[in-house]
Computed example of a mutant assay.
Amino acid sequence: MTSVPSLLQFARYRVEDGVRDLLGKEISARVAETNLESDLDDTILAGIGAYALRRHLPGDILHGMQVFTAAGSHALLLSNLPAQEFPATPVSGFGDEAGLAVTNAIHLGLIRLLECTPFAVHFENDGRLIRNVVPNPAASGTTSSWGADSEFFWHTDNPHQPFAPPGSDPRLYTPPYLTFYAVRNEERVPTEIAALDDVVVRLDPDTRLGLLAAEFEVGAPDSNDGEATRALRSTPVLETGPDGRHRVRYDRGTTAGRTPAARKTLERWCSVLRTVPSAELVLDTGDFLVFDNYRVLHRRKAFTPHPHATARWLRRCYAA
């Protein structure tokens, strides 16, 4: 096969140390006398963070954030953001949200700069806005964001939900964007992302046509409450959105072909996924990552976490 250059549109920025320190000082001062919870006070936290970020971030970063969704970029990474004093990793999955007000103001403020709205779903994470991506011992052996010992193959989040029509309540549909703030990653575990465009150009015509057929069933991932979710039946894996771009719903563990032809199509799809070019990102403390969940597949390999107090800890929030 002829080598094809990667089509991944990935913007990377880094905050200078002086700007980082000014941001941290201002946001810390604004939340110091408060008791703001991410689930109850997300609008206030977003306002505090966005105000400080607009005051201190350089123009090129602000512009890159503002045009990210409109430009149809796949992913954006902003590094060296302020980091507060963090508690031990909440490996149970839940911790003190009020104690993370600085981090939440930054995270939610950045989502506002993207001109997006953060949201949670009732069938995952107890309906809480921010998911602690941690190695929860209770999730051992599962392909869940609370797992560690099982490999995630290429997938999109909540693929069992329909794609949202414009102007819809995002809680009823597949999340358009995934955002992450990295608290700690001493294990140096990479998050890998790949553009759907890079997969599509490597598909033969028959496989591409097969993926567009409504001959698949997609169930909920392990991180969802199975009693509150239903599989999406008679659906395509690949679609063309209203903007003319391809979009995908896929999780190897929950996607099945309903016909012999569809099952063979999935086999060829998986073979291509094993060869797709990707970006391997080792997120450090203070890194913010956002990517398009319709047009980007992501994965994480199995790893051995550090002891609970210092285990890998990312903060994830859906956005639309």
Results as ranks from 00 to 15, higher is better:
Asp206Met: 10
Leu232Ile: 00
Val237Trp: 03
Thr207Trp: 15
Leu232Thr: 00
Asp225Thr: 02
Leu238Phe: 01
Asp198Ala: 05
Glu217Leu: 15
Val199Pro: 08
Glu192Val: 15
Ala139Met: 09
Ser144Ile: 10
Trp146Ile: 05
Ser150Tyr: 09
Ser145Cys: 12
Ser223Gln: 10
Asp169Val: 07
Val201Thr: 13
Asp204Ile: 07
Tyr173Lys: 04
Asn158Pro: 03
Gln161Asp: 07
Gly219Trp: 12
Gly141Asp: 10
Pro175Val: 11
Asp225Tyr: 08
Asp157His: 05
Trp146Leu: 12
Val183Gln: 08
Ala220Lys: 05
Thr207Asp: 14
Leu203Asn: 11
Phe216Trp: 14
Asn224Arg: 06
Val199Thr: 07
Gly141Trp: 08
Asn224Ile: 01
Ala138Asp: 15
Pro236Ile: 00
Gln161Gly: 04
Thr156Ser: 07
Trp154Tyr: 14
Ala164Ile: 04
Gly147Ala: 06
Pro175Arg: 03
Tyr177Lys: 02
Ala195Asn: 10
Glu187Arg: 12
Asp197Gly: 14
Val134Gly: 13
Leu238Asn: 03
Pro205Tyr: 03
Asn158Ala: 12
Pro236Cys: 04
Ser223Asn: 12
Trp146Ala: 06
Gly244Asp: 11
Thr156Ala: 02
Val201Trp: 08
Tyr177Val: 00
Pro162Ala: 03
Gly210Leu: 01
Phe180His: 11
Glu227Gln: 09
Arg202Ile: 03
Phe180Asp: 01
Glu186Cys: 07
Val134Trp: 09
Asp222Ala: 14
Leu212Arg: 15
Ala139Trp: 09
Pro190Val: 10
Val218Tyr: 00
Leu203Gln: 11
Gly226His: 15
Ser150Glu: 14
Thr207Gln: 07
Tyr173Leu: 04
Pro176Gln: 12
Asn224Leu: 05
Pro137Cys: 05
Trp154Ile: 01
Ala194Gln: 13
Ala182Phe: 06
Leu232Tyr: 06
Pro242Phe: 11
Val199Phe: 02
His160Arg: 00
Val199Arg: 01
Ser140Val: 07
Asn158Leu: 11
Ser168Ile: 04
Pro165Ser: 07
His160Gly: 12
Thr143Trp: 00
Glu217Gln: 15
Ser234Phe: 06
Tyr181Gly: 11
Gly226Leu: 15
Thr143Val: 12
Trp146Arg: 13
Glu151Ile: 14
Val237Leu: 03
Glu217Met: 15
Ser145Phe: 04
Val218Met: 03
Ala148Glu: 04
Glu192Met: 10
Pro166Lys: 04
Asn224Lys: 09
Arg233Gly: 06
Phe216Leu: 08
Pro162Ile: 00
Tyr173Asp: 13
Phe180Lys: 02
Gly244Glu: 14
Thr229Phe: 06
Gly219Phe: 05
